[in-house]
Amino acid sequence: MQLIQLIIDGVASGCIYGLVALGFVLIYKATETINFAQGDILMLGAFVAFSLIGVLGMDYILGFALTVVIIAVFGFFLDAVVIRQIIGQPPFATVMLTIGIGFILRGFASIFWGTDIFSFSTPFSGKITEFNGLIISYVNLSIIIGTAILVSVLYLFFTFSRIGVAMRASSENQLAAYYMGIPVKFIFSLIWSISAATAAIAGVLLAPITLVDTSISLIGLKAFAAAVLGGFGSIPGAIVGGIIIGIVEQLCGTYENYLFGGIREISAYLVLILTLIIYPRGLFSDKAEVKKV
């Protein structure tokens, strides 16, 4: 029973990793760049939500929606104004650029909001439900359900909507998509905005658990493990990878004494390295194999 309880907690935190990893994957599939600032966008989302809900006293749902819109617009212009300038440069430039942006966001947040730890009340705070002796907090439930809804919406969007299909086309083959009359640049900015919005949703859902401060941007780094495990480039892979990482982390934390001390904090990174060494294509890769040299 304890094991199931741990798995449920793991799934909840894993969903957050999955959502952040989803952001990586969307951008990677489209533009072949990796956004190292994803975790910082998550942090920004949590801070904006705190300002709207905690400070201005907005309704939770309204504040949540507004946060997502604000961050999505931010993501759109981040690509349109900054990232686009270095298209075609070696990958190193993108890595450095997004890391730099991450630092700017973190610095901005700690100047604007200060370095205190904030929390704001949500409809889920402090409530739990019991089911067959399992204790599930509403916060965890909200994360799991929120992720499920978001993933379904994204699935429908990419499968049926015109613009979603255009996005898939542009990430499949830019040039062909361009010849078909798809505004590729606009589509790429839109993908950045969707990815930023996913991070913002993850940030707001996470806020009741970890509270809001600048250190939550580190989640972005753990989410790399989720993305790699899922096979960078697969949307279901990102979520499943995230959930596996979440469960592994919970189990490592509980059975720490049998393994070695403090393994919990680095378990995600260990999984990442092991995946790269043993099975680099990941669980759900759509590519036949990761190119090896």
């Binding site: 890391i99 730099g100 942006i101 991450g102 630092f103 700017i104 966001l105 973190r106 610095g107 901005f108 947040a109 700690s110 100047i111 200060g114 370095t115 600048t214």
Partner: peptide, 10 residues
């Protein structure tokens, strides 16, 4: 503010 350093860095 302590955040100035990472911000300038970035």
């Amino acid at each position: 503010q302590p955040g100035l350093e990472p911000m300038l860095f970035g």
